[in-house]
């Protein structure tokens, strides 16, 4: 079984602060970390690896220093890391990013499952995961909160009833729980497939010392645009359908009034203040 985990290096957003005088972001000295949602994807990849003796590969697209997040993933139990890095990719939007990543995944070869975090904490788009699946033309299930069962073995009709096959779900499948606004759905999906995962799926482990030592020694594979099959017109700023025209800082929310007095007094005033806004 082969598992691919896609991750992103992001600035630690909780440390992004606004300079109140210039109203701009203070990014100096901000640490770069693994996108918090991707930590769950890595953990799920490692768990599947441990359960099935699978091979787990982690891939990221970013600047050379993004190698750090690949090594961190390896310290947590992932086998290999691939860094997709090229000036040609700079300025890629979600279309171009998912295109480049899908081309790299094609180069990795056969896989059973791709695991992504539900979204990145800097861009918050949640588009790259499903985008990769569309480029690869494989099914995807987003917001997965649990893998109930996974059967990576092909041609085991004895296990699966005819019914599933006739409905398009093949014998190698995963049954997962997909989080929705009101609860969750249970979905069966043919492999190979892509899932994006939410926090509820697991509790990421801490690295181990031996893992950290292995990560330090690990050889990270570097691929440039010329190493994968991509049309240069479809990557980078020029290949991105969307363009950012303006970036600005919203006026920071300021505190309003403090209600003081006896409990009943406060409650009466608050109800008065809110009444007209209650539908």
């Amino acid at each position: 079984m082969n598992i691919i985990v896609c991750i992103k290096q992001v600035p630690e957003t909780t440390e992004v602060k606004i300079n109140p005088e210039t109203n701009t972001l203070i990014r100096e000295g901000v640490k770069s970390i693994i996108n918090p949602f991707d930590a769950y994807a890595i953990e799920e990849g490692v768990r599947l690896k441990e359960k099935f003796g699978a091979k787990a590969t982690v891939i990221t697209m970013g600047p050379p220093q993004a190698e750090a997040v690949l090594r961190e993933a390896i310290s947590l139990g992932i086998d290999d890391g691939i860094l997709l890095s090229d000036r040609a990719f700079a300025g890629s939007d979600t279309w171009a990013t998912s295109y480049a990543l899908s081309a790299a995944i094609k180069k990795i070869g056969a896989f059973d499952l791709i695991v992504c975090g539900k979204q990145a904490s800097d861009g918050d788009t949640a588009q790259v995961g499903p985008g990769i699946s569309a480029h690869l033309d494989i099914p995807a299930v987003t917001y997965v909160k649990k893998i109930e069962e996974i059967n990576p073995v092909r041609n085991t009709k004895a296990i699966i009833g005819e019914d599933k096959i006739s409905n398009g779900v093949k014998d190698n499948f995963a049954r997962v729980e997909r989080m929705t606004e009101a609860g969750y759905e249970i979905i069966e999906v043919s492999l190979p497939a892509l899932i994006t995962v939410v926090k509820e799926i697991n509790t990421p482990r801490l690295p181990s010392l031996k893992g950290m030592m292995r990560a330090k020694q690990a050889k990270i594979i570097h691929w440039k645009a010329s190493d994968i099959e991509v049309e240069l017109n479809f990557v980078g700023l020029a290949g991105s359908p969307t363009q950012v025209v303006k970036i600005f800082t919203p006026a920071p929310r300021v505190g309003g009034q403090m209600l003081k007095g006896e409990t009943q007094e406060i409650v009466d005033r608050l109800v008065g203040l809110l009444k007209s806004d209650i539908p």
Binding site: N167, V169, T180, Y184, E185, I187
Partner: peptide, 11 residues
């Protein structure tokens, strides 16, 4: 469809 919805659980 290569996926199939088996159940909807409202929590």
């Amino acid at each position: 469809s290569r996926s199939k919805l088996l159940d909807i659980v409202d929590e």
